[in-house]
Nucleic acid binder design. Structure first.
Lengths: 247, 247
DNA sequence: GGTTAGATTTCCGCATTTCGGAAGTCAAGT
DNA sequence: ACTTGACTTCCGAAATGCGGAAATCTAACC
């Protein structure tokens, strides 16, 4: 059949509700009911009932003027609870302050969510770039040094999914290089020449997160990275990994 | 009947799924099925099916070792899309860099979600306190200057809900004072003497968000606030409000 | 002011999905 | 090896959710 098979033992109603959240996360801030009907294939009354249910849970909101629907304020509350409870978050957070103090760079603690890099924590450096800095805390993993490192250690299916999100994808050799490297380095095209470096935080044999540093090219020169940034980053990541091992 | 009436035109299955997300956001990172059954009143097979549905959508995850369930990685992805699409986020983000440059303090852009203050954006100042800084980006609104300001301008029901979350609640007079003030000031008890100030960002007649500054008491003295922080904060907020008005 | 069109919301009969008790499976503890 | 408690699956029943039709609402047009 054309329609993909539902995972075993799951509920269609919840699946549809979750699909709506995903659809609402793409494109404009708010969507008309009729647009959602077209994109989801669901009839208007079905959509309406689902959205009213999500509205009641504050997972969705409705613009009173246009009647259009968008993601709701309960999501950041739940997301924060998720991030707070990651063992690596509480283990790592104290080290970010020292790392920023010693390097002056922006420090990030990054986990993988699907094919995205999620900043579980971030401590801004002295120079965050111009006023049009990218404040977003979820980015495509392939566009960040930390995300690349995490993809290198993720399942093959995650890697393949990530390749599907981009047109100029890296090779399997690239990935092998990231996996083998102590430090992954990357300068995002969109980040106005702000190099990033990242290293793994391990929990046992598993890579639990990545610790990253970034800043303007004038500060993250090759020499500064070799002499200052990389050593401090590796030391902090090792300490965090030990803290995780103890927990 | 003892059970509260469901909102009209909503689905029980989605309501239960949303209830589970809320239960999972309270207490430990992962919960046993049997614990959730006790807390929710739902039978095990019903819970199991709901959780498997949320699992498939990555709104929930299951710890492979303990089989326990916790909030899932899709939540930060959705939350970030919600925050990115708030008109005030894109309007305000450029001003945070200047505000930090001129004051050196931590700059926050805060919205209200239920009775919580959500940091739509944050740019860390020079001094973020010790290594045990509070990295959380969702806090009880009453515990922050920005949150208090937003509560002052929120509906009465939100205000009452917020009062219910604390034992040493402020008075109605306090609230009136916050509503009337250009700047709300507060030093959280838990923040090791780090004063906060906040002012309103307006969209038309509505208060869309709050802009805040915080830092160590040694920097945010009364005089420094009067001469430096407050003027810059008010100016930035006024600019952001004008940008919002234009949109 | 009346009409039209398109969007959202509500109704209601039906059927399919969800429910939940019972049973099966699994793993840790004794 | 047995027991216990937790998780997962089965399957008949019933209740909820579905979706076509209709109602309502609002903006645009004349």
């Amino acid at each position: 059949m054309g329609e993909s098979e539902a995972p075993r033992g799951t509920l269609g109603t919840v699946r549809n509700a979750a699909l709506l959240l995903t659809l609402l996360s793409e494109g404009p801030s708010h969507h008309a009911l009729t647009d959602l009907a077209e994109r989801s294939g669901m009839p208007l009354p079905t959509l309406h009932r689902l959205l009213r249910s999500l509205l009641a849970a504050k997972l969705v909101e409705q613009d009173p003027e246009s009647s259009r629907y968008g993601l709701g304020p309960q999501l950041p509350r739940l997301a924060e609870r998720y991030i707070e409870r990651l063992p690596v978050t509480s283990a790592a957070t104290p080290y970010l302050v020292d790392l920023r103090a010693t390097t002056g760079a922006t420090v990030t603690l990054v986990t993988l969510a699907g094919t995205d890099a999620v900043f579980a924590d971030r401590l801004d450096g002295e120079d965050v770039g111009g006023v049009h800095r990218d404040a977003s805390r979820v980015r495509p993993a392939l566009e960040t040094a930390a995300g690349r490192l995490l993809l290198a250690h993720a399942d093959d299916t995650v890697w393949k999914d990530a390749l599907a999100t981009t047109t100029d994808g890296p090779s399997a050799d690239d990935r092998e290089g990231w996996r083998a490297a102590e430090i992954v380095r990357h300068t995002p095209a969109a980040a106005a020449s702000r190099p990033e470096i990242a290293t793994a935080i391990r929990a046992g044999s598993r890579v639990a997160a990545a610790l990253g540093l970034s800043g303007p090219a004038s500060q993250l020169t090759d020499e500064a990275i070799d002499q200052l940034h990389a050593p401090h980053l590796l030391r902090a990541a090792a300490s965090i990994s030990r803290t995780l091992g103890r927990a």
